[in-house]
Design a protein around this nucleic acid. Structure first.
Lengths: 173, 173
DNA sequence: TATTGTTATACTCTATAACTATA
DNA sequence: TATAGTTATAGAGTATAACAATA
């Protein structure tokens, strides 16, 4: 669910090898046959996901946000007053792993932990003003550069159909 | 491009947290709003990919094969006489990382390295008889349990459309 | 000099156990 | 006792540099 910060710094360099496409020729000039691999949904799913995350990283590079960090900011903005466990669970991040992730965002003053008055064990996670500003800029970059290109590649109808099928797989498969 | 071997041993246990679905209720009974997240292609792509790999692991559990290992066996079967670099490159695996992966398959007698007579630097990777047998059984399990259920969920036409769009994203985006 | 396979290494991601402070 | 946040830790996955053997 997350992406390396090193990759965020230099997405193109970080996955140069993975970018080599199946059909690309090798040293001797003969590309290998993918065979049944190209009919395996999981295989194409994985390669498409890597490519999309790579492009996301590229598009949001000025803001230094990974897909995972962006998803946290989005969720905080939409769900104020929630604690770490609730945010982490919703994103499929394990609570122990969410600690360092929040530390990173908090150290950049994008969000803050606040002790809940109801339950002093809980940390309510809030977006800071800077966090809201960065999120707003990130949304614009994602919409204008990232999602726009996907829309262009697939067409709006196909893009919607793709999204619906992916959501269906994630929730019903 | 690969999947943990621990997950292969117990896929359900390994990703219990990640399996919690976005709409699932929390302790206080109120599910969080995903908001724009549900319109982010990358987000659904990632969640669908995790779910599909998890199911793959489950379906092929009797053979103890990860998606990555299965893809190597498929490629070896379809492309005899190739060396490590060619196989690894085609799958987007870096050569140094492919060494341990091949060691694992070779130690289970699923494939073997053979010095090339033309170029004594190269290791030609060949499927063993056992490797061919395991691959055949794996293909049947994947087709009968894994892909069949995906087909059932989406319908053949939608499944084909999904595959085409994913391949398009991987190669043209 | 360049390439193949390899080792060593480092960093990220993911997962579990166990601690602390609260409830 | 149970839960929230945390720490420590371990295992995969992924990336780079550098070496030996060979070309």
């Amino acid at each position: 669910m997350t992406v390396s910060k090193a990759a965020a710094v230099d997405a193109t360099k970080a996955s140069r090898a993975a970018r080599k496409e199946p059909a690309e020729v090798d040293a001797d000039g003969a590309a290998l046959q993918l065979g049944e691999l190209s009919e395996l949904l999981g295989y194409s799913l994985k390669r498409a996901q890597l490519r999309v995350f790579e492009d996301f990283l590229c598009c949001v590079a000025p803001l230094q946000l990974t897909p995972a960090q962006f998803s946290v900011l989005l969720l905080l903005d939409r769900n104020p007053g929630r604690n770490q466990t609730e945010i982490a669970n919703t994103l499929g991040i394990l609570r122990p792993n969410f600690v360092a992730m929040l530390d990173g965002l908090e150290s950049r003053d994008l969000c803050a932990r606040m002790r809940s008055t109801n339950d002093r064990r809980s940390h309510i996670v809030v977006l800071t003003d800077k966090g809201r500003a960065v999120l707003a800029r990130a949304k614009k970059l994602v919409a204008a550069k990232h999602e726009a290109r996907l829309n262009e590649l697939l067409g709006p109808a196909n893009r919607a159909a793709l999204l619906a099928m992916l959501a269906r797989i994630a929730s019903e498969f």
